[in-house]
Design a protein around this nucleic acid. Structure first.
Lengths: 240, 240
DNA sequence: GTCGATTGATTGTATATACAATCATAGACA
DNA sequence: TGTCTATGATTGTATATACAATCAATCGAC
């Protein structure tokens, strides 16, 4: 390795961090790779060990590295992402669990905007919307009932999709980049329709997630997602 | 101020952090207060300046302190929050609706750490925790059952609070600046205990929010919040 | 009274040095 | 072959020292 990192405008410890991040970013140091020890970096970079230590310690605190006393310093695997406020890709989640995902398309059609949805689309007056109802299954067991109303101006081909092969999520994420999002979560008891579609007893507790997304200044989607309480939870983590 | 902080089981810089967090938690050092300078803390605690500096630097990175070169070190104000992922102040929400808030304190005690909570506090081994159970009412109607386990090292006076006058939320926001947060949300059917405390029929759908917060590298609180599905929902909005 | 320079206080960074703690490996011995 | 101990490598912490950079207050000149 070469001598002192360049860019004297920032402190040395920051330069060491940048040096390491560049090696990670370039793929030179992939996940789980052991990097040179502190003393090796002292030789390589001609910087004091305490400065190296600070850089490595901060990258460790930031989740970029993991260190084992007596052993060495390793590139940490990328963090699993998942946040309540993000769009939920139930198919992806199910597959990530090594389970078989299946989508039962109950309905997919273009309809006149129902009067009770007018308030939701006030900002984006429409005559018609796409309406889809899909049950997502994990290993055959119903997990989520998804009902969506989609703005055809943004996704003209929504109605042509085969949602047994792809999912609305996958399609919408590409077609309607989310610039704003609002949601409400509560718990409901499954009524007869929901209980039937999700194959649970009437009255069983379900998580109801209502969500509206915008792309630019247009309402893109209005979604009602119902999860079987016993089979699903939403989680997230937020930190420094 | 007295001499070296106690508890030699942890490194000095951690002890200094705990020492400072205890002063914040006790209300001795409120928001925006300037704390003693590094050199003053060197005198007060008889520890090297580099060790003090490390403690203060880490608390700054964690959002607990803010530092101004040439001026001093200050207690950072609690961050403005207003998001699903943030702490929910049910009392504040109820009052904001112009409704009367009341807290029924079912229990508030200091207990040995229950074995089933050990995993939650793995990162912060404790012998004891504070345990509180409170029912929050809006205009007399039960809305939320709140159960909390609180780290006494961070909030030594938690057990002395009158939570009919203030709320755990108000107290904890001050005492345990949240530097990391994780949660799980799901829907449950109220069991007999919950149904009794929330005055709802057994089996009624409730939103279950389980949350764990960290202050610095210590687990601060482990919370179980149960909301009556029919009476409460959690919402949020996110934009660019 | 205003402006600029100086001073003192404080935080910020870097280095050298020392010792502690942990881990993995190699070697010795039964 | 299995166990135990010693060794070397590595990270972890603590201290002392030095200089840099920034801020606020004070002082002096105009």
């Amino acid at each position: 390795m070469s001598s002192k990192p360049a860019n004297p405008a920032s402190p040395l410890y920051e330069q060491v961090k940048a040096h390491i991040l560049a090696r990670i970013g370039s793929g030179l140091w992939p996940s789980d790779r052991r990097i040179p020890s502190e003393n090796e970096l002292v030789e390589d970079l001609g910087i004091s060990r305490m400065t190296i230590n600070r850089a490595l310690r901060e990258l460790t605190a930031e989740g970029v590295l993991k260190r084992v006393q007596g052993v060495g310093t390793f590139i940490a695997p990328p963090k699993a992402r998942g946040d309540l406020l993000e769009l939920n890709d139930i198919a992806g989640e199910i597959r990530a669990r090594g389970q078989d995902h299946r989508a039962d398309v109950i309905l997919l059609e273009r309809i006149p905007l129902p009067p009770d949805l007018r308030p939701a689309f006030t900002a984006t007056p429409l005559e018609e919307v796409f309406h889809s109802v899909i049950v997502h299954r994990e290993g055959g067991t119903a997990m989520q009932l998804e009902e969506r109303y989609v703005n055809p101006a943004l996704v003209p081909d929504y109605g042509d999709q085969d949602f047994t092969k792809t999912t609305p999520y996958e399609h919408l994420v590409r077609a309607t980049p989310v610039t704003e999002l609002e949601h409400v979560i509560t718990a409901i008891a499954a009524d007869d329709r929901v209980a039937h579609l999700l194959e649970i007893p009437p009255g069983a507790p379900c998580l109801l997630l209502e969500r509206r997304t915008w792309t630019g200044d247009q309402v893109a989607t209005v979604n009602t997602l119902i999860y079987v309480g016993e089979r699903y939870s939403l989680g997230g983590r937020r930190g420094r």
